[in-house]
């Protein structure tokens, strides 16, 4: 997985854990967290594939643009690998 990643700009109609405000935003992998059962399957009582999970750090400037309170404040979120694409 590349160090710089973008959250896929998808609008999924079910239970997902990639927050809308980060979709299409680019960040840096802060650390790899290992693999976890995919909540998009677990939430429906289905057998779950193991998905890698990453902690991704974004600048507030990247997320909110000029509206950010402080450009270089940061936001960390955990994003599953299948929601990330290399930049």
């Amino acid at each position: 997985m590349a160090n710089r990643v973008r959250v896929k700009a998808l609008a999924a109609p079910g239970h997902v854990r990639a927050p809308f405000y980060l979709r299409g935003r680019t960040g840096v992998i802060e650390r790899e967290l290992g693999v976890f059962g995919n909540p998009e399957q677990l939430a429906y009582g289905l057998p779950a594939e193991e998905k890698p999970l990453y902690r991704v750090r974004f600048t507030m400037a990247e997320i909110w643009g000029a509206a950010a309170e402080r450009q270089d404040d940061t936001l960390d979120a955990e994003i599953y690998g299948h929601w990330l694409e290399k930049v």
Partner: peptide, 12 residues
Amino acid sequence: LFNVHGLRRALE
């Protein structure tokens, strides 16, 4: 019996 992901899905 079920998991926290199912709980969240139902809440949503």
